[in-house]
Amino acid sequence: MTHKITIPCHTSKLKDVRDFVSEVIRLFYLSEKEQFLLVLAIDEICANRILHSNHNDTTRHLELEIESQDDGAVIFCIKDEGDFFDLNQNESTPVERLVKDRRKGGLGVSLIKKIIDSVEVFKEGHYTIHRLIKKSSVPSQF
């Protein structure tokens, strides 16, 4: 089953995204901490897309789909019309460097990479699609 939400591209809508993700993944076999961190990872990617690729432009929309697989994996698909940016190509800046430079940004991509097992980024028409996969931590019985 697929669960979907569409929001205008504005950071004030991130709370709606978090509430939606929390509500959906409550149904999956995930610990409370795993759920919390998944909500965080999706919040991070959506914030990134809204701010840096869609420039908080409320005339644009971001669509998030969540789907669970038979093997327990959870797939998050984020679709928007913003600029293409492949975070896999983005080298995470060491925290010590960010502190030295007094930078407020730069931690989000590191968080996503530590929480999510794989991220695919591709274009589909004029849409940019991010496909995030979180494998199940529960061993399969089959």
Binding site: R18, L40, D43, E44, A47, V95, L98, V99, K100, R102, R103, K104, G105, G106, L107, G108, S110, L111
Partner: peptide, 17 residues
């Protein structure tokens, strides 16, 4: 109840100060 990287970044950006 919740903090994202934006909040962490605020704390981090003041450590040198």
């Amino acid at each position: 109840n919740y903090i994202s990287s934006a909040g962490l970044g605020v704390f981090m950006s003041y450590l040198e100060d």
